[in-house]
């Protein structure tokens, strides 16, 4: 098949460059090779090749990029310093489970087949609240950042350089300047939803801002183009946690009449204690 493909490509190039036309000047009868019966096999080879290209790409993605990345992620997960096994926290007592509202019962046993228990058991927490847009969530998140005394870890997908994004960037910078350890992880593709990007505004040294996987068009990096992190997490001092679907962009602030309004959920656990959401989020 490879030789057939090469023959067709060579004849095609010769035809385009006029070589075949030049030969025709000697007035000898000559048929264009694309219309001969012999070339039919070559055309079929091209058809097979075109059909196989999508499959070939999937196989390359599977073996050349995705598996090594997964292996690397699995190695990272196995390192003891990255997976803190906290003291087991007992779940609800049998009486509490008996009194669990019917709507919550599927979540009591979710994941039980994979042996997940202990700290991820259904627990009773306090202070958990829900917001459905940035008008409600952003002030609470910025307040948590402003009140943080020791650490702030933040991860998001989209971080626009607009009114909302600059406010967060300033808050992280202020926290850094007052001695709080700040770690900000933004998906590299998510920083390109606005132009110019937020990255130059918040240099790495200022707020420990790091991009996750720069998308690139180089062939050897295209395999990771779809490796994106969509986690939206903010944890302050390891005690106050926010997680949900809200990115950092003006579009979530509905009261400001954005051009592209977006409504999404985010859950906050503001309890200064053993809130299971904060416990899970900070992992």
């Amino acid at each position: 098949m490879g030789a057939d493909l090469w023959n067709v490509a060579r004849e095609g190039l010769a035809h385009r460059s006029g070589r075949i036309g030049h030969h025709s000047l000697d007035h000898r009868p000559r048929r264009t090779p694309f219309y001969t019966r012999e070339i039919r096999g070559c055309l079929l080879a091209w058809v097979r090749f075109v059909w196989l290209v999508p499959l070939l790409g999937a196989v390359l993605y599977l073996f050349c990029r995705k598996r090594p990345l997964r292996r690397h992620a699995a190695c990272v997960a196995r390192r003891p310093e990255t997976y803190r096994a906290e003291a087991a926290v007992s779940g609800c007592s049998p009486d509490e489970l008996h009194n669990t509202p019917w709507a919550y019962r599927p979540f009591v046993h979710a994941g039980a087949s994979r042996g997940r228990s202990g700290e991820k058991a259904l627990l009773r927490a306090t202070g958990s609240s829900r917001s459905s847009n940035g008008d409600e969530a952003y002030p609470a998140m910025l307040q948590a950042v402003a009140e943080a005394k020791r650490t702030i870890s933040f991860s998001t997908y989209i971080f626009d350089r607009d009114e909302a994004g600059l406010e967060f960037a300033r808050a992280f910078g202020d926290a850094k300047r007052r001695g709080v350890e700040v770690r900000v992880l933004i998906d590299a593709a998510g920083t390109r939803y606005s132009f110019p990007s937020i990255m130059p505004y918040a240099p790495k040294g200022e707020s420990a801002l790091r991009p996750f996987f720069w998308p690139a068009f180089a062939l050897w990096r295209m395999m990771s183009m779809n490796m994106r992190t969509h986690r939206k997490i903010l944890v302050a001092d390891g005690q106050v946690g926010f997680t949900g679907g809200i990115n950092i962009r003006k579009g979530h602030c509905l009261q400001k009449n954005p051009k592209r309004p977006v409504q999404d959920l985010i859950f906050a656990s503001k309890a200064r204690g053993g809130d299971p959401i904060a416990r899970s989020v900070r992992r």
């Binding site: 310093e81 803190r84 906290e86 926290v89 007992s90 609800c92 669990t100 509202p101 919550y104 979540f107 009591v108 979710a110 994941g111 997940r116 991820k120 058991a121 259904l122 627990l123 009773r124 927490a125 306090t126 202070g127 958990s128 020791r150 650490t151 870890s153 350890e181 770690r183 001092d237 390891g238 005690q239 656990s269 309890a271 204690g273 053993g274 809130d275 299971p276 959401i277 904060a278 416990r279 899970s280 989020v281 900070r282 992992r283």
Partner: peptide, 22 residues
Amino acid sequence: LEGDGWFPPLSRVGGVLARGVT
């Protein structure tokens, strides 16, 4: 990220049912 700054000891409090599912 290690240490009490990132992972302070927590105790069980509250009354709202919640659970983190990976």
